[in-house]
Nucleic acid binder design. Structure first.
Length: 506
RNA sequence: GUCUUGUUAGCUCAGCUGGUAGAGCACGUCACUUUUAAUGAUGUGGCCGAUGGUUCGAAUCCAUCACAGGACACCA
């Protein structure tokens, strides 16, 4: 059973005995009047005082006991709240009669959440501490904390029991604070630019806006299946049709696909759509967005990412075809010739699927020779039309689209384009996807006639962009697994071995 | 999906080519009123991820399974 561990039993027993002593091990009347960080700041002057103490000051702080050093008639403990850690000095003769021997030493241990009041003083070792005159247990922890020095390092445990990870690893809290700030700053940035934040459905009758397998759920009252959304794109564009000229949504998408260091079945993105603008305007606003983030996060623009160093002051822009030779080193005379590309790829021992068209082959060259070399932020522009089904064709060259993807540290961070707004063209592209689906491509885009009908009323020329928030946070925090920037990453359930074994043998 | 590494006490980890399971922390008891992973003494603690096989004998060798980490493939 869940509490059959002997250490937990021991601590449950302590909680019981505390109750018998008239002490509520789950008290609810906290009198905290400052945080540990503020306590340390406000009293930093005590070190200059004559006795290195100020008995006229009185503070009440609360937190979890992280370390406990009992030395006979006095003890030191390390108390931690969200804001920081402070040392507390607890001595028998400064606490109420018998409390130290009968309660503190017997029942208080590492992991418990307590409240102490007292005055600031500096120890002989020079550490600003709190001299306790009142001591109160707020919450008895019946489960023991992991080892005090090594903490908890096992990744599986850290992800499954994120609360333990957060208790033991303060730097993990920092990552999630940055994540929270990134989302908040993103929201503020777009609001300040006049964008309207909207919420569109998470449950879709047709899973559209991307090519991906959806999760399916069921609506009982209507007796129909719904799909968790794979992208909000088609709903946001309907709003542009409706007359909103700048909208954004920060929310979750769900894709029923594999999980790895950069993929979680639910992930967060921002998508924004901007009427009367083109992808050129998106490049500008994206640069501004990064400047804004770095300024408000107080980050240096030269950021380490693993072995790499990324210069966020160095945004460049280059058409995809040009990048193949200038960055990828592919001979420029072959990049527009299907057969020569195939021969080139084969000579590099890269197998090419039969039937690939020129645009797909150029995409293949890009993936193989360019993508990983894009360390500083790079806008790759002018994607071939064959690999850009939702993007608007260039008016100058019908083979390419008004599209870019932003790459940083060898990874795609954003995808953006001037939107296709010709309803007849859109219908035709959906029909093309339908025939791909019929011939076995189960990730081809679904037909969405309702969306085509919306376009038929006229959508202003619009530019739209999506940014993967999780991957952006990974970059900014130098984390290399998406699981380290998700509080509760998806995990397989632990199987109940006993039940399974019994069930199968019976 | 493929390959690869791992799973031993609450936590961090040892355990060689098979011979009755080890340490540190934590916990219990004792000592200790300025410690910093406090210290000293002493004690408790394990179905060695699961199932099957080889063997006189398996934490150790083999197979299958489960979960996890990493790499690759697929995928925005």
């Amino acid at each position: 059973m869940i509490f059959d561990n002997k250490f937990i039993q021991q601590r449950i027993e302590k909680a019981k005995l505390l109750k018998a002593e008239g002490i509520n091990p789950y008290a609810n009347d906290s009198k905290r009047n400052t945080t540990i960080e503020k306590y340390l700041n406000v009293n930093s002057d005590v070190v200059n005082k004559e006795n290195k103490r100020d008995e006229h000051r009185h503070y009440t702080i609360s937190g979890r006991i992280k370390l406990l050093r009992i030395m006979g008639k006095a003890s030191f403990l390390q108390l931690e709240d969200e804001s920081g850690t402070v040392q507390v000095y607890v001595a028998r003769d400064h606490l109420p009669e018998d409390f130290y021997n009968n309660i503190f030493k017997k029942y208080i241990e590492v992991g418990d959440i307590i409240e102490v009041s007292g005055y600031p003083f500096v120890t002989g070792q020079g550490e600003l501490s709190l001299h306790a005159s009142e001591f109160k247990l707020l919450t008895k922890a019946i489960a023991p904390l992991p080892e005090k020095f090594h903490g908890i390092t096992d990744k599986e445990t850290r992800y499954r029991k994120r609360y333990l990870d957060l208790i033991m690893n303060a730097e993990v809290r920092k990552t999630f604070k940055i994540r929270s700030k990134v989302i908040s700053l993103t929201r503020r940035f777009f609001e300040d630019k006049g964008f309207l934040e909207v919420e569109t459905p998470m449950m879709h009758p047709i899973a559209g806006g991307a090519n991906a397998k959806p999760f399916v759920t069921h609506h009982n009252a209507l007796g129909i299946d719904r799909f968790l959304r794979i992208a909000p794109e088609l709903y946001l564009k309907r709003l542009i049709v409706g007359g909103f000229e700048a909208v954004f949504e920060i929310n979750r998408n769900f894709r029923n696909e594999g999980m790895d260091a950069t993929h979680n079945p639910e992930f967060t993105s921002i998508e924004f759509y901007w009427a009367y603008k083109t992808y050129k305007d998106l490049i500008k606003i994206t640069k501004e967005y990064f400047e804004y983030l770095f300024e408000h996060l107080n980050l240096p623009t030269l950021l380490p990412y693993g072995e790499l160093e990324v210069n966020f002051d160095n945004f460049t822009e280059i058409p995809l075809i040009e990048s193949l030779s200038s960055i990828g080193g592919v001979p420029s005379e072959i990049v527009n010739d299907k057969d020569k590309i195939i021969a080139f790829l084969n000579s590099k021992n890269i197998t090419v699927k039969p039937g690939m068209n020129l645009g797909q082959l150029q995409g293949e060259l890009f993936d193989e020779f360019v993508e990983e070399k894009l360390i500083d932020p790079t806008f790759i522009t002018e994607y071939p039309v064959e690999i850009s089904p939702l993007a608007r064709r260039s008016d100058v060259n019908p083979d390419i689209t008004e599209r870019f993807e932003l790459f940083i540290a060898g990874r795609e961070i954003a995808n953006a384009f001037s939107e296709l707004n010709d309803p007849v063209d859109q219908l035709g592209r959906f029909e093309g996807q339908m025939s791909a689906k019929d011939s076995g491509d189960d990730e081809a885009h679904e037909m969405d006639e309702d969306f085509v009908e919306a376009l038929s009323y006229g959508m202003a020329p619009t530019a739209g962009q999506g940014i993967g928030i999780d991957r952006l946070v990974m970059l900014l925090t130098n984390e290399h697994s998406i699981r380290d920037v998700l509080l509760f990453p998806a995990m397989r359930p632990l199987s109940n071995d006993e039940n399974n074994a019994q069930g199968e043998e019976a």
